[in-house]
Each structure stands twice: as structure tokens, then as C-alpha cells.
């Protein structure tokens, strides 16, 4: 791993460059004629053709067959939001604190809340206008409950704006959550790994 000292060294050119061996440009007529002949007779054209034929026969194809195939994306990639549920109980993690709504710099999050039968705050409706969203990740970062996170779904095409996102689509399926099939979310919005060490314990006398 890179140490901080190495990281802070901004002089990247030192010892990192080397010269490419390129022959001089032909200057006289004779030299130019020599270059033409050597290139034509050497058959460089067929070299490329050969490589293609060889790989075709080997069936070692690297083309990703999008949209049937998709490349894995980094955990901290910021694509369309997901709303998480708690493990086991499957309760929605969102408590309706409204911080995402407040911090959103493109003003695209809006939520309606009310008091429910158990005197708890309930989110009755939650929308993100993805047409406005700039995927800055502030909402996921500010969320105190790891409820709203950025998922990996990066395709945003639809015939209608209304298709862009609905709360139900964002929410992790309930059955997956209760079966414990949802891994603790590692992506954007997750707490950093050493968070446990920072927690101060509460004294308990009983």
C-alpha cells in the first residue's frame, strides 16, 4: 500500500518517463521509397487479420454482451437510489427525518409523513425526481439510518418520466429482507468499516 509520504509526493514525472524508439522520418526520395516498399512487402495488413482469425477460432471473446451482460460496478458507484429494510424484521429503515429532503441540492426529494397508530412517524409517500437528480450522493451520506443508499442500477431510460422511480421500486423487497438475503449494504452511504471503535459506551448500573 501507498504510504502517506508517497501519496503526498506530487512530482510524478521523476523516473517514470522513458523514450519510445521511433525511427527518424525519411527525408530523401530514396529513403521514402524504401519505407513504402518495406511496409508493403512486409504485409502488416495481414498481421491484424491473422490476430482476428486466431482469436475467433479460440472463442476467447471479451465483448460484454450488453444489455444481456453487465459489468460489475464498484460498491461506491452512485446510481439510482435504493431504500433499505432492516434485517430480519424487514421494517423499512427510513424514519422520515427529512434530512435527505433538506440536503438535496437539486431539490428533487420530497416526502410526506404523518403519525401512525403506534404514535410513530410514518412515511406515507416518498419521491425522488430522477429527472432532476444529479446523483451527488448527499442524501445517502446524510441518512442517519442507512435507509437511502445509492444502488447499482444505472439505466435511466423510459418512455415516461413517471417511470423513473417509485418508492416501491426503490424499496428492497420485503421477502428478501426477512429471509436475510440482503447483505449489509457496503456501497455508497454505508458507514465506514471501523465505526464500531468510535462508539462510546453508555454506563449501565443495572
Amino acid at each position: 500500500m501507498m504510504s502517506l509520504k508517497e501519496f503526498e509526493n506530487r512530482n510524478v514525472s521523476e523516473g517514470a518517463y522513458y523514450k519510445v524508439d521511433i525511427p527518424d522520418y525519411p527525408e530523401t526520395g530514396w529513403e521514402k521509397a524504401k519505407q513504402v516498399f518495406s511496409r508493403a512487402i512486409k504485409g502488416e495488413l495481414f498481421v491484424g487479420l491473422y490476430i482476428v482469425m486466431r482469436e475467433m477460432i479460440k472463442f476467447d471473446i471479451h465483448t460484454v454482451q450488453y444489455p444481456k451482460e453487465k459489468l460489475p460496478i464498484g460498491p461506491r458507484y452512485r446510481a439510482v437510489h435504493e431504500m433499505q429494510r432492516l434485517w430480519e424484521s424487514g421494517t423499512e429503515r427510513c424514519i422520515g427525518c427529512g434530512l435527505c429532503e433538506k440536503i438535496c441540492i437539486s431539490d428533487c426529494i420530497r416526502m410526506d409523513t404523518k403519525i401512525d397508530e403506534q404514535s410513530r412517524k410514518q412515511v406515507t409517500e416518498y419521491t425522488i425526481n430522477l429527472g432532476r437528480c444529479i446523483f451527488c450522493g448527499y442524501c445517502a451520506e446524510v441518512c442517519p439510518e442507512l435507509a437511502i443508499v445509492h444502488g447499482g442500477r444505472y439505466e435511466n431510460t423510459s418512455e415516461q418520466r413517471a417511470h423513473y422511480i417509485g418508492y416501491e421500486d426503490m424499496l428492497t423487497p420485503f421477502d428478501m429482507a426477512v429471509k436475510g438475503q440482503v447483505a449489509e449494504y457496503p456501497g455508497f452511504g454505508a458507514i465506514t468499516p471501523h465505526e464500531d471503535e468510535r462508539v462510546k459506551s453508555t454506563p449501565l448500573a443495572y
Binding site: 427525518c97 427529512g98 429532503e101 433538506k102 409523513t113 404523518k114 403519525i115 412517524k121 410514518q122
Partner: peptide
């Protein structure tokens, strides 16, 4: 206020 409770944040 029971009518207001949990319906809006002060900053909104």
C-alpha cells in the same frame, strides 16, 4: 400538537 405531529420539519 396532535394534528401537526410528524407532518413537517421546522426547517421546511
Amino acid at each position: 400538537s396532535s394534528d401537526f405531529q410528524y407532518s413537517a420539519n421546522a426547517w421546511e
